[in-house]
């Protein structure tokens, strides 16, 4: 009888200690993730809400906070009629083509380098050079290489008898293609490295079994390598598509959206509207479109991943 209160007390003390332990864990946890969470909240979460809010307003930054004018969906209605916006969106769609192109090249290069060459290390570095170089330096070099009248590329073409080579980035019909070519050139290294890593995880005995069945290199590539790389391909496709929507640096350095709007793209137009024309509300509506597009692709990825990727 007399021991009962003692055990109760003991249990109480135990659960109290547990509570205080748990509280200690919570405090520690918050301290550890706090800085990142705080930074993300201030720099991304609140700003994205602000972007969506501002997309329904008309605001010239210079006018100050009281200059904000609620316009409801006015900006979006205007976007639908805005030739430059439609052109940007269209260019973004055309730009999507670079993704399958560089993925295909990277996959083939990765397979060749992985299995059929000497000096693997050299090739890895060579193809990877454009990725580690800054886009500004790369853009500047290509700008000179593409120089219409006496740049090396056109001199080369002239030497082959092409009397009237394109003016590349100075030509409205070729500017976007030129930028796409440079983008393919830059992106191959990164994609190739990811593919090479994925190739390491394909069991070697699959190839040996196929060899016994008399499969040649092509069949092995088409029936073993490509299907087993499909999760990687899917990942590269999605991240690649998202990154084409974020293209900005190369356009800012090389063409500034020109000549005559032929290389304008979503983010360039956003930048131009916000920071050159100080049209904050309208720029925010473009940013919101960008956000929705990227989110849609990400959501689509989750849905498709289950169906499309075969492990």
């Amino acid at each position: 009888m007399s021991t009962a209160p003692v055990t109760v007390k003991k249990a109480e003390a135990k659960s109290k200690r547990k509570v205080s332990l748990q509280r200690g864990e919570t405090i520690a946890g918050l301290l550890f993730v706090g800085p990142m969470f705080l930074g993300v909240t201030i720099l991304v979460l609140l700003p994205i809400l602000a972007t969506v809010f501002l997309s329904f307003t008309k605001w010239n930054f210079v006018a100050g906070i009281q200059g904000i004018e609620w316009t409801s969906v006015g900006n979006y209605q205007e976007l639908l009629k805005d030739d430059m916006f439609i052109k940007s969106l269209r260019n973004n769609m055309i730009f999507l083509l670079v993704v399958p192109i560089y993925m295909l090249v990277s996959m083939v290069l990765a397979v060749i380098i992985d299995r059929f060459v000497y000096f693997k290390g050299f090739f890895k570095v060579a193809y990877f050079m454009p990725y580690i170089s800054s886009i500004v330096a790369v853009a500047v070099v290509w700008q000179v290489l593409f120089e219409p009248s006496y740049g090396p590329i056109n001199e080369f073409l002239k030497a082959f008898g092409i009397t009237d080579p394109p003016k590349w980035i100075a030509d409205p019909n070729f500017a976007l293609i030129s930028i796409m070519m440079i983008t393919v050139w830059v992106s191959i290294g990164f994609n190739m490295i990811v593919y090479m890593a994925a190739l390491q995880s394909i069991p070697k005995d699959l190839y040996e079994a196929a060899e016994i069945d008399g499969a040649n290199n092509w069949i092995k590539f088409a029936r073993i390598t490509v299907p087993l790389l499909s999760p990687t391909s899917f990942f590269l496709l999605v991240t690649g598509i998202i990154s084409t929507f974020k293209v900005f640096d190369i356009i800012a350095v090389l063409t500034q959206g020109g000549p005559i709007g032929s290389t304008t793209m979503l983010v360039w137009y956003l930048y131009d509207t916000a920071f050159q024309n100080l049209n904050i509300g309208y720029a925010s509506s473009i940013a919101s479109v960008l956000l929705v597009l990227v989110l849609l692709i990400t959501l689509g990825q989750w849905v498709a991943q289950k169906k499309w990727v075969n492990y």
Partner: peptide
């Protein structure tokens, strides 16, 4: 937040 493209928050970041 990882899915939010950095350019979609540039304007508010700039104002902030």
């Amino acid at each position: 937040t990882y899915m939010i493209p950095s350019q979609a928050v540039l304007v508010p970041q700039f104002i902030l």
